[in-house]
């Protein structure tokens, strides 16, 4: 089970929950599981979020593996100048 942490405004789409235990082997499976549990979060998942797996930030990386017991943070995507 991975431990997911939702940062920033995301808890507004999860009824206030910020931490969630989920079965997910990769980022796409994580998004799917989150979308099933929190339908309001679904539109934000694939387009606008980055995922940090044990601290390392991934952007647009559906198939990045999530190790068991990993800590996964969902945060806004980052660009730059």
């Amino acid at each position: 089970m991975a431990r997911g942490v939702l940062t920033g405004n995301l808890r507004k789409f999860t009824g206030g929950e910020t931490e969630v235990e989920l079965e997910a082997g990769n980022v796409r499976q994580l998004f799917r599981a989150l979308g099933e549990r929190y339908p309001n979060l679904r539109p934000h998942l694939e387009e606008s979020l980055a995922v940090a797996i044990d601290g390392q930030i991934y952007q647009d990386a559906w198939f990045e593996p999530i190790p068991p017991d990993a800590e996964v943070h969902l945060l806004p995507q980052i660009a730059g100048g």
């Binding site: 044990d54 601290g55 390392q56």
Partner: peptide, 14 residues
Amino acid sequence: AKEGTRAAYGPKFG
């Protein structure tokens, strides 16, 4: 902040 510090925006730094 150093390696392992939880950044204020969530995840831990490498």
